[in-house]
């Protein structure tokens, strides 16, 4: 954290004076104070992306007041934030309608939309089975937290899709399952049968290591070998599951 980011600043939310750190995500600051701001593409562990457009707020800085997403708005001294204004509510409604049309099978989207009073969409549904909303959280976690970058977007515009390269087996994937864990709409899929872990969306199948002590499958061998490579610890260190180590 740089010096300027650790500096404390004062800002206002709907007239209430609050404090936070300069440069931190406005969304995170708001949530810390207990404000309910909806969002699907944000996670504290990774950099903000601003894809889902749900965490809209109005921010006044100096004379200018504008609608913006709060996740990628860096907190600054003296800004005034307005939640749930007419602008915010009406635009969020349309965004939710668009998400319902894009990912009608996503339970989380339907739930959230209902919470905000949106129960159907005036727009045409592309694929009734689709759950992915292109939030990119899986790829950000893979790159920034796991340090692998096994997956990414292909294409652009309306044709943008989250895939493993060539939509074939993601050969760099270590099968850690972090993407599955963070996915807000549960559209990646992971299963374990017969000592094999499968990450469905990335067409990745990896054999699991058996703990030399308790005998249970605990992590993909490929992942453990990578860990050994990255940490410099002997491979033998990873023969036992974390509980038996």
């Amino acid at each position: 954290m740089t010096e300027s980011q650790s500096r404390e600043v004062t800002f206002k939310v709907d007239g209430r004076s609050l404090r936070g750190r300069q440069g931190e995500s406005l969304l995170e600051a708001l949530r810390r104070y207990g404000y309910q701001v909806p969002s699907l593409c944000h996670h504290e562990a990774v950099s903000p992306y601003g894809a889902c457009r749900l965490c809209l707020v109005e921010v006044q800085k100096g004379k200018r007041r504008k609608l913006t997403t709060s996740c990628n708005y860096p907190l600054m001294e003296g800004i005034e934030v307005f939640l749930d204004t007419e602008q915010v509510v009406s635009n969020r409604r349309v965004v939710l309608q668009l998400l319902l049309a894009q990912a009608p099978a996503a339970e989380r989207v339907r739930q959230l939309a209902a919470e905000y009073g949106v129960n159907d969409t005036p727009f045409e549904v592309e694929d009734p089975e689709n759950r992915c909303i292109n939030c990119g959280l899986c790829a950000r976690v893979c790159k920034e937290v796991v340090g692998v970058e096994a997956i990414g977007f292909s294409g652009r515009g309306a044709g943008k899709r989250m895939v493993a390269p060539y939509d074939e087996t993601a050969e760099d994937c270590i099968g850690c399952g972090a993407c599955v864990f963070v996915c807000p709409t549960d559209c990646i899929g992971m299963s374990e049968t017969g000592g094999i872990r499968t990450i469905e969306r990335w067409h990745r199948k990896l054999p699991l290591k058996t703990c030399s002590v308790c005998g249970r499958h605990f992590a993909p061998t490929f992942q453990l070998n990578k860990f050994a490579e990255w940490t410099g610890l002997p491979r033998g260190h990873f023969d036992k599951c974390p509980d038996c180590r």
Partner: peptide, 21 residues
Amino acid sequence: LADESCGKCVSCREGLRQLGR
């Protein structure tokens, strides 16, 4: 524009797609 949008924001990507339809 639907084709040239980078495709990050829902409002632009899905919005322009639906506008086009």
